[in-house]
Amino acid sequence: MSYVAAKGGAQAIQAAHQLVAERNAPNPDDLQAQIAQHLHLSIDRIMAEASLYDRDIAAKALLQAQGDSIEAVFIVRAYRATLSRFLDSAPLNLGHANMQRHISAAFKDIPGGQQLGATYDYSHRLLGYFQNLQGPDESAAHAAIPSADTKAPNTHKKSGVMDILETEGLIEKSSTEPADAENRDITQIPPGFPASRAQRLQTLARADEGFVLGMAYSTQRGYGQNHPFIAELSHGSVNVEICPPELGFSLCIGTIEMTECQMINQFQGDSPETATFTRGYGLVFGHNERKAIAMALLDRALRAQELGEKVEAPAQDEEFVLSHCDNVEATGFVEHLKLPHHVDFQSEISTLRALRAQSLSTTARHDDTL
């Protein structure tokens, strides 16, 4: 089902609001479980920036950090460092993901229809708004508005907007950059410069959302030449598979929630015949749309040199962005200023006093000479 302003949109929006209200229903379990349920967007952000998909661990860390999300990320990363790595997973098959939300801002009619999912994008920003929503009969609501139904997500292979544009030759082909088995995991081997696009995307996926958002915003205001359209914004669950060497075939070991953003950007080319739109891409853990969109904007900005554009804005400077986007590193360097620096300061104040004394002595000798 497609949503439009004139017809059908009100019902779909109402169903989307209802799904948010249902998710916020009271939970009789313990505090940690309530945090995981009611603060699930915060939990998703912590999992993304800590590079560890575990809601219980993220909720426990947020509780321990007294609500400080960056401190919670630090705690989860420290815990993650104690875990053993025994096998790599196969690449995620996002074409077969179970979509709970799948929209396009560039096209009204997309394969499978616009699925609003559970979202407050179309609601009033009023305090207590969702508390006032009544719970209608769920089966009737979901039957009437299939596009907002998270109970029966779209399980068909996704035929995306980008695939259609690529078939028509209107957008650059998707990246064929080979995976570097020796240097593809930035948590094991830090990326150097220049970094591959895969390394850039990994770094942005776990970067601080606020930093990525600020950089992405700057590109829209002229510091990076981004004039984008969201081709597809999707949220859903996808299978994680491993292929044990002794078996020789893949096994599904579970599912994780992901948010993916496919961005269409301004075209480039040497002639009208070869001109195509360019891509930006974002993929993060959980329901994390703001981060995925900002990541796609920043990914496109960081491709400036690859696409023959001048690197003039901060968001286009790979070394600047990738070296400063990690919130744990930034927090450590900034907050270490709270720790004792008595010896350092005494050294500097002694130097300043000596300079002052030397200056006064020089001035006195000069006056005596006169």
Rank of each mutant, 00 (worst) to 15 (best):
H336K: 12
L339Q: 13
L297R: 14
D326Q: 02
Q346L: 11
N327P: 07
V334L: 15
L297Q: 13
A315Y: 03
H324G: 05
A296P: 02
E319H: 10
Q316N: 01
A294T: 10
A296R: 03
H342R: 14
E329Q: 13
I349T: 15
L337V: 08
H336Y: 05
A313N: 09
R303K: 07
Q305K: 14
A301V: 03
T351W: 05
I349G: 03
T351G: 02
R300V: 02
P314N: 05
V311P: 01
A357Q: 15
A357K: 04
M295E: 01
Q316H: 05
Q346K: 14
E309N: 13
A330R: 13
R356W: 08
E312W: 10
G308R: 06
H342N: 13
L352N: 07
V343H: 10
F345W: 11
G332S: 10
L337Q: 12
M295D: 00
L337W: 11
L337T: 12
G308E: 09
F333T: 10
K291R: 01
E329W: 13
S323C: 04
G332Y: 12
V334P: 07
P340W: 10
S359K: 12
L302C: 00
L337E: 12
V328W: 00
V321W: 02
L298V: 04
T331K: 12
P314Y: 10
F320H: 04
Q305W: 08
N327I: 11
F320T: 09
E318Y: 10
L339E: 14
H342Q: 11
R356F: 06
L352V: 14
M295H: 01
